[in-house]
Design a protein around this nucleic acid. Structure first.
Lengths: 299, 299
DNA sequence: ATCATGCATAAGGCCAATTAATGCATAAGA
DNA sequence: TCTTATGCATTAATTGGCCTTATGCATGAT
């Protein structure tokens, strides 16, 4: 069994350490940001507990007693160790940002922009882990999560990032090849990428176009938007995509969105983190960056 | 200049150390003698200051985070060092008793009895220093003082030990050699030891005996009572002595005190120590012992 | 399905720690 | 020698950090 050592009065020990180092109550009080009276009190407390005077009070100068001389070095060393460990933990904690994100958002949005965050915060190491499940901050070491859902998670602060809207997109040249896209039904004259995606059915239904056989073939659906987007930009067909994920392609004309009609899966992508850590520097930094990026790309 | 390291919240660190060691809030609370709620509060405080969680809260079990893992060993070590230094100081402080005494009392009373104190307290080392001046507890490392005076010293607790009375003493055989001592003047028929001692003059005056030439010769006076007492016991003459210093000789008949007449120098011997240290174990021990010795020798 | 375990949280109380004001002793300077 | 300045001690009053009690919540065990 581990014998429990009696614990000294810590406040008094800290004060003693400073006094011993300065050989002065007044100077120690300055360093510690308290009054000389408080220092005097704490030293008296410690002397009572130790059972012996720790300082000889000579006029205009104090000196350590024998007992004090034996005590001081060890105390100073112990506090140095405590401080260093604390500072290191503080620094280490702020040095790494762990982001848990769902794959869709990571590949379609985050991957392309994360570099600018790291440039803006060179002292922050970013660890990005994509996970299928909702991260539980109480049992995993994650600073920030990106997930889809309703935005209401108890104990978590949540910022809506982008809506999971979807609408058909294609390359301008492909649209021109059939003389332009005038109405939704025109799309059916072109190859549809990944017809197994349930979004197609929903969108055509919302557009009041009846189609058949769309879901007859299996295929990859969500999470592969980046590939479909590339294929569409290359003119290989029409993809159904989330506009916010392809703001750049739409802006520079590699893709066009023929109709304003947006369908919605009733969910959005959210930035979340424990409410209690709202003011943690690295979390603030990331929140500020990502919200700034969103504002920039939506304007 | 020495850069001041930021000091962590010490109470929280202590709690963290215990929690890390037990891997349990509840057990740590037990060890520290506080409630689990208080532990939870302190850990939260520390986590806020560090800026990162220190524990992962898993059901029925907690685990250190990476940050916590780096922090814990150093903290444990630092607190061990603090505790050990504190305990050592405590022990060392109680292990040595420094007595500052005037020579007269040391040689005539203390020297013969101190052994019994050391036998009663084998773990206490006694350092006896005889000094001519009044010891100043605020500037010298002394636990206990024995001094003569009025008994009124501000800030010091004082216990009257013995009065500095004096009266003639001699050996029974010497008294018998002149047919016994009937009245004070009889003493003049015997050799007086150390006639330079002013006590002789005072005593004879109080006894209403006129004498001359007593102080004509120089000689040692106070501080040498033990030698004069031995000489008197050996039958070499009559000495003027403090009865309390020769209680043993009077009790076993080596010396006799022919007259009850006591003179007094208007001072006494006192045991003194700083009032604030009244309850220090070693001071209590010595006080109890010396007062017991006095009670025993006066009965 | 119910119980037991372990941490989190809210409200309230208390004492330790601190401050401000003052005293006291001594050393330095005139 | 007298005055001034420095530094620690002491007192009383205040405050806020720390702790407790009570309760809630989630999860694993029975």
């Amino acid at each position: 069994m581990h014998k429990t050592l009696p614990l000294p009065p810590l406040t008094a020990m800290r004060v003693f350490e400073a006094v011993a180092r300065h050989a002065s109550f007044t100077k120690a009080a300055n360093e510690l940001g308290m009054t000389q009276a408080a220092v005097s009190y704490q030293i008296k407390v410690l002397e009572d507990r130790v059972g012996a005077p720790l300082f000889l009070r000579r006029p205009r100068q104090i000196a350590l007693t024998e007992v004090g001389q034996r005590l001081a070095p060890a105390v100073t060393q112990a506090f140095e160790q405590l401080s260093e460990a604390y500072v290191a933990a503080r620094g280490g904690a702020q040095g790494t940002l762990v982001i848990s994100t769902i794959a869709t958002f990571a590949s379609n949005w985050l991957a392309r922009r994360l570099g600018s965050f790291q440039i803006a915060h060179p002292s922050l190491a970013v660890r990005l882990q994509t996970e299928p499940h909702l991260v539980d901050f109480t049992r995993e070491e994650v600073d920030i999560g990106i997930r889809s859902g309703s935005g209401d998670w108890p104990g978590l602060a949540a910022h809506r990032l982008i809506d999971a809207d979807f609408t058909p997109m294609l390359s301008p040249s492909l649209a021109a090849s059939i003389g332009g896209i005038k109405e939704p039904a025109d799309l059916l004259r072109l190859p549809l990428l990944d017809t197994a995606d349930p979004w197609w059915a929903k969108w055509f239904k919302a557009a009041d176009v009846s189609v058949e056989g769309l879901a007859s073939r299996p295929g990859s659906s969500m999470g592969a938007q980046v590939y479909e987007g590339n294929a569409a930009a290359a003119g290989q067909g029409v993809a159904i995509l989330t506009p916010a994920f392809f703001a750049a392609e739409l802006a520079d004309g590699r893709l066009v969105q023929p109709f304003d009609l947006l369908c919605n899966d009733d969910h959005a992508y959210w930035l979340v983190y424990p409410e209690t850590r709202r003011n943690s520097p690295k979390i603030s930094a990331f929140r500020q960056w990502i919200l700034g990026e969103l504002a920039a790309s939506s304007s």
